[in-house]
Amino acid sequence: MTSRAADPTRYAATAESLVERVFGAVGLLREQVLDCRSNALSRREQLQAKHFAELRPGLSALLHAHRDVVVGMGMVIAPGILRGERHRVEWWQLLPGRDQPSALRVDLNPESLGFYDCDSAEWFSVPRRTGRRHIVGPYVDALGTDRYLLTFTAPVVADGTFLGVVGADVPVARFERCLLPAWADRAGGMGNVGAGKVAPDVLIINSQGRVVVSNSARALSGELLTDESAVAGTVRLDLPDVPWQLLLSERLFHGVGRNQP
């Protein structure tokens, strides 16, 4: 094992640049939302659903530019911002093989089995509470997109008023597909397979200990990494401004989170 391969900062840098690319797109969307609002105010109009229609061309361009990693983007507007609406979900997905984004339709009726509860969703509640950007996941977006996702969100605040969150949905599989080849390049080889192991075990976990991405089948996306799972000598590195930590071990991780008979 070369010391170059064992340097966690190189792996972290690759992950960070992917994360910042997604948040960059989210930031651009936030600017567009704020522009929409200023335009409406300058016309002395109260903010209405129709104003968010102005976002669509810009949103479509962002989705096309990042379609290798992002599947959907949009804004969830807080209750009370638009008259008569609890939340409004202005969320668009660029589905595989399609040129035009399609609107995500969710059930906002609290009396329904299919109710999509924005208020209790972490991607909404955390940025609202902290005023900071956040990444949720991996999680199953049940009754929404029904995908296995990482959701990147940031609060939109204007003149001290919380308008809602803007964000991007990144399928866990796409994030992995974008990151692992880059990690393999750093290490000079692909993955950790059997005797041909050329790289250390590298993985990212979220603040709850859930595996976000991993180059080893001993720790799969979605599993929980318990304290006992990481062997001695594991290097840990916090990723800046996201609730993630990168773990690197020259030796093997134990299988994590699985029931031992």
């Binding site: 969710v106 009726n109 329904s112 299919g114 999509y116």
Partner: peptide
């Protein structure tokens, strides 16, 4: 009239 239509409704 609710604006949103979920997958169950389709």
């Amino acid at each position: 009239m609710p604006a949103a239509i979920g997958t169950g409704r389709q």
